[in-house]
Design a protein around this nucleic acid. Structure first.
Lengths: 89, 89
DNA sequence: GGATGGTGCTACGGAAAACGTAGCATCCCG
DNA sequence: CGGGATGCTACGTTTTCCGTAGCACCATCC
């Protein structure tokens, strides 16, 4: 499970999640993640870009690649479940 | 996404993944995760137990709870995809 | 033309997390 | 009384992360 190496790091999954909608600038992404420090954010973005999950559109900002969108799609069932889990007794 | 707080930590996802099959003892789980340090493993296990995802069966060892199995199930599409992703050009 | 505000990104010191090794207490089996 | 399991803790080192400040660049505005 090489994927776990990548996603099992702080903010990695969160970044993908925050990019589920429209493109976000570096600063906007930072805010969306609750003001992560830019150094860490940049490190994660490098890893995600090297993994072809995220790319930087010069005009719009950071976006998921088609591959990233595939990942997100497979991730949605989890999100659904997570909400019910969070409300457990 | 409270779930990301839990799973977005080192070894958290990995532990759930390694428990996909039969129960594992503390030490076996440690080996399965590539010899994580026991302190971290124990910290994660506490978190996962507090979250009702993992439990310690006195006879067998660490096992996923029904809730944990649900999580794993939703996680499987990702695993499938991850293998193809890992082999990308 | 220079001020203002946006962009992505880096540097650096301190705090927190993870690591690695050793070992404790307990139980079971011979 | 060993010997070998079990879950788990302690502690010193290393790695990672955080928080703040700031750089270089570009567009807009007056």
């Amino acid at each position: 499970m090489v994927l776990l190496d990548l996603l099992g790091r702080r903010w990695a999954l969160r970044i993908v999640w925050e990019l589920r909608g429209d493109a976000l600038t570096f600063r906007a992404l930072r805010e969306a993640c609750g003001d992560v420090s830019p150094s860490v954010l940049n490190t994660r973005l490098k890893e995600l870009r090297d993994s072809d999950l995220v790319t930087l559109d010069e005009a719009e900002g950071y976006v998921l690649t088609p591959l990233g969108r595939e990942l997100l799609e497979r991730f949605l069932p989890l999100v659904d479940w997570a909400e019910r889990w969070a409300k457990r007794g």
